[in-house]
Nucleic acid binder design. Sequence first.
RNA 1: GACCCCGUAGCUCAGCUGGAUAGAGCACUCGCCUUCUAAGCGAGUGGUCGCGGGUUCGAGUCCCGCCGGGGUCGCCA
Length: 592
Amino acid sequence: MTNIFGDFRRLVVAALDDLAAAGTLPAGLDFSRVAVEPPRDPAHGDLATNAAMVLAGPLKQNPMALAERIAAALAGRELVSADYRGSGFTVTAVRPGFLNIRLDPAVWHAQLRAILRAGTAYGNSTIGGGEPVNVEFVSANPTGPLHVGHGRGAVVGDALATLLAKAGFAVHREYYINDAGAQVDVLARSTHLRYREALGETVGAIPEGFYPGEYLVATGQALAECDGDRWLGRPEAEWLAPLREFAVAEMIGLIRADLAALGVGFDAFVSEQALVASGAVDAALAALAERGLIYTGVLEPPKGKLPDDWEPRPQTLFRATRFGDEVDRPLKKSDGSWTYFAADIAYHHDKFRRGFRNLIDVWGADHGGYVKRMQAAVKALSESEAALDVKLTQLVNLFDKGEPVRMSKRAGTFVTLREVIDEVGRDAFRFIMLTRKNDQTLEFDFAKVMEQSKDNPVFYVQYAHARAASVMRHAAEQFAPELLADAALAATPLDRLADPVELALIRLLAGWPRIVESAAEAHEPHRIAFFLQEVAAQFHLLWTKGRDEASLRFLIAADPELTRARLALVRAVALVIASGLAVFGVEPAEEM
RNA sequence: GACCCCGUAGCUCAGCUGGAUAGAGCACUCGCCUUCUAAGCGAGUGGUCGCGGGUUCGAGUCCCGCCGGGGUCGCCA
């Protein structure tokens, strides 16, 4: 796949190797910090490299002099990529020691052809090298429908997974079902209450310690239809386990439906309960015990705010402090059962045993305190072979026309993910969830998301794609379909694309592979949202330019050759936007 | 008290893992919008990058210390 920055970096490194071979530079220099980037200031040219800047230090040489030597070595080289063989470029060494590279427009035209040939696969990268990555996300407790916060985690995890796949990783999406703790017992009891209600009993207000949600009414009814009155008037010990199983299955059904509405799918749902039953917890902890990482001890009480029921107690502890955590962490509750952490260790151990070395978890920000211990556990279990990156998603604050939407589980004004999706649509929701960095709180305004204006990034980007599609529809009145196919446009002469605004747009589009790689490496899908807004802005700019200068319009009836060159650009814009939206799981709009 | 995240223009936020004169949108000011591709367009004002040190050719970015906001803190998940 063509990546002009990568191509030029190779060219720069080759020039450096030449200098080393000629004895101008010492052999064995580290070029890893040498970068080829678009300069922030377009006046500096098309590409810039810091090669002289980063090598001057270790060589104890004047960066400017070094830059001039590299420039000379670079100037003699040829562009070898088939896409722009024979095209030229100029290199100039400037002030502190940067090298500015200016490319012939023909190089940019070649980029455009590459986009048209690749289609929405443009931007695909091989940096992942087919390496497996396990992305665990959502993993909401199976005690009710998903809320908006889960929705953010779902979108971030899903987009990150797609992004990594685009960057060449073998991605596996997982959902961990916490179906073994105390909260599923509460779910079972709450279901029993609704079940009695379904069978005609008056239960009144839902007491403290039970889930009050209306969604359990249907679960109680379903149970009544299924099992009749067999659980009525029996002791809890008899019905707790079967009802738990029943209710969890119902909740998973709810959650899967919510995820389906969002367009999020998983390769696996892993049950904590099944993991415990399979002995995975014992196995994982045995592995830790073998390495002497488990002991019985008494923890210091937390400083500052002391829990009122605190009492020193010997516990089974994991030596998390050996791996960068603040304190050692308990593995067993006082009733002898495993803590959530113990089971989660087993789960991550299981991921490791299934061959994953790259692990990513997407958690809500309220779980921030667990990052270090989980990373410690992964390090311990994998002997530092596996790495766990945890992406914490911050709160989503709901607004409507600038007014905060009050949410309270008790008052029943709780907004579910489903309600939001039904209101604004899946695509708008997904896009907005990715317009902020994951660890930044996000304002979600119902009115704004639906607004058809520049303020609304979803609309702005979709409108650019729709405009491009509209141009192509108009073009179809003038040209035969075979002349408008991407392959035909790729073959058309493009040297008439010479306006600075047109070239700036092509430059931007050519940056897409670079964005994919850097966003994938940083695990930051939100960067794509900002890139797409830039592309849309540049395209809208070109569009409006055509209003003042008729010669810049895309469709010029009297000049079919120029028109087709411009259509190539229009199609490339549409393809890059579609390629970016595909990472987000958003359908590009053909018209609005 | 400890740990994690955040602090960039009046507001909402970017800032490409240390690069060149810190950006965008909104708001504000000024101009344009009979026709053409106007669910508008162009230009301008606006900054001690929370504060103070440090690292180096170079720091919004990395390190240390403060200040402010949020989150979390044994037997919840």
